[in-house]
Amino acid sequence: MPFSPVSPTPSSRSSVVAALRAAGCVFAEDEAELILGAARTPDELAALVDRRVAGLPLELVLGWAEFRGLRVTVEPGVFVPRRRTEFLVEQALAQAPDARVVVDLCCGSGAVGAALADALGAVELHAADIDPAAVRCARRNLAGPGGRVYEGDLFAALPTGLRGRVDILAANVPYVPTGEVGLLPAEARDHEPLTALDGGTDGLDLARRVAVGAPHWLAPGGCVLIETSERQAPAAVEAFTRAGLTTRLAVSEELYAQVVIGVRGGDTAV
């Protein structure tokens, strides 16, 4: 018989909050509630608190992250989906509300693909990542909507039968400049794979590769979307435009998110 989550006593809750506060957790009360809800025994509660106090990201302590209302499984060594990336999903749905073929490139946990499939309904869903740990995790998260997940480097991982058929190509590429990776918060720097963070000298190496390759994979009117920083956005827009895509930049002040959207015209060669 499975255990139920630990029923917190006032003293256990206060001790968890105190431990998290002492470790510098800004939202100690909220985190305590989540950890108490995840623990099935007092020993497991102690272990979860110890992991969080040691600096493990909360999502890896819990084993899941919330993303657009979904509980997405996350595992050690896999990029944790960020709330700001929900804006990329929103922009994709606004651009292609009737999409039938969706690709989640650089998929990490598969959160973007899962959210798109959840919103769109029955879609042909494909995802790919270069990291074997991410591929294993994404396969768990995308099994429900019937997603197929491939291991490999960007478009080389995809089946050639997708060329010219993709309605939404969401590519949450890494975009931290190599020289700035060491400045990231310890939770990211110490616990997430470098391949999911390092975007090259100016952070746009993979973004440029996606821009060049996307027109060959998109259906007429299909869209490709990447996330970038405010500083990098002009160069990212230029790369998309040079690739022959009709390009615009969408900005969310609330989420501090910048999403570059490129649309393939009907006459782009594939």
Rank of each mutant, 00 (worst) to 15 (best):
T195H: 03
V149G: 04
G199Y: 07
L249E: 04
R231L: 05
R208D: 02
S229E: 02
G164Y: 09
R248N: 04
V166E: 01
L183H: 12
D167T: 07
R209C: 13
Y150A: 12
R242T: 14
P159L: 14
E227D: 07
V149A: 07
L169Q: 03
L154Y: 04
E187D: 13
I226A: 07
G200I: 07
I168G: 02
L184N: 06
A219T: 09
R208E: 09
T195D: 00
T195L: 14
L162E: 01
D198L: 12
R189H: 09
V181M: 06
D205E: 12
V212T: 14
L225F: 10
T195Y: 00
A157D: 06
R148K: 13
Q232L: 05
L249D: 01
G200R: 05
P220C: 13
G182T: 10
R189L: 14
G152Y: 09
D167F: 08
A196M: 05
V237T: 13
G182E: 09
T201G: 01
T201H: 10
W217A: 08
L184H: 08
V210K: 03
A157W: 03
A170K: 02
W217D: 04
E180C: 11
R248C: 12
T160S: 12
Y150L: 10
A207K: 03
G199E: 05
